[in-house]
Amino acid sequence: MSAVSRPPESRRDWLLSDAPQTRRQARLGAIYQGWLTFRANKLAMVGLIVLVLLIGMAILAPWISPQSPYAQNLADRLQPPSAAHWLGTDALGRDILSRLIHGSRITLFIVGTVALIAPIIGLLIGTVAGFAGGWVDQVLMRVTDIFLAFPKLILALAFVAALGPSIGNAVLALALTAWPPYARLARAETLTIRNADFIAAARLQGAGRFRLLIRHIWPLCLSSLIVRVALDMAGIILSAAGLGFLGLGAQPPLPEWGAMISDGRGYILDFWWVAAMPGIAIFLVSMAFNLLGDGLRDVLDPKGDKS
């Protein structure tokens, strides 16, 4: 495709065209439309920028952190923020900034894994239940109800207690306790979609159950799930930090943010920064995810579509 064959037009016009000429243009155009909607939400942009910074920080951690997160220096313990240690040091004289930077990797690992596992379990169970109906629906939804009946953190605690405290088990426990709301959501969406005319039309073309589920129902459930996940992310970070705080998540000396707060709680009155700095980090990232979720809702929520 050479530039000559196309009439002169800006890239923006090409993307916003109402009559795309190729599959690629249509797809890119749809993405660009979404980006424009998202960009219009200033707060969501703030959230996105914070998260991009966080990801950048996690990737570049070994290069940008001033010191090793594990290097102890008992002579420098519990130093307040200063030029040498921007965010101060903890009880073992470790640089808090370096620990926070390395800790972002752990946070992202937890968040990323839970955000991948929980919605997928929820989507599978919810859509299958909603689409199949009958006894399948009954069984799957009763199982979901049982999970929902326990407070999330308590259930996660039980899982970790059974599996043994470690970061991997904490993630697993969080994922296994986070899926029921997604299943509920996906089932509700499926129930409204499954009687739609476009499903009937696909059925009349001879589409089988799997195809209907994967090609037709999933894409419509996915958008509301993504929004929900982004909004729940803050809760997941807090739960992970909670597990860390209780000593059931990441084990020392891993610089997990929740565990860092836990470490600092003994000195919270005299050396506030030890607990406050990771607390602020958790707060910032949780808020960024919430803002991002709000923006994603503008973009993805099918009810917001102009039709």
């Binding site: 249509a26 005319d197 476009f198 009937a200 073309q205 001879g206 589409a207 419509l220 099918p302 039709s307």
Partner: peptide, 25 residues
């Protein structure tokens, strides 16, 4: 179907709708 707003999948392009139909048939 009666309502053309309900009988097309909101996230499938015209191309995708027809291609899928033809493939299924």
């Amino acid at each position: 179907f009666q309502d053309p707003y309900a009988s097309l999948h909101p996230r499938h392009s015209v191309d995708a709708v027809l291609a899928e139909t033809l493939r299924l048939q």
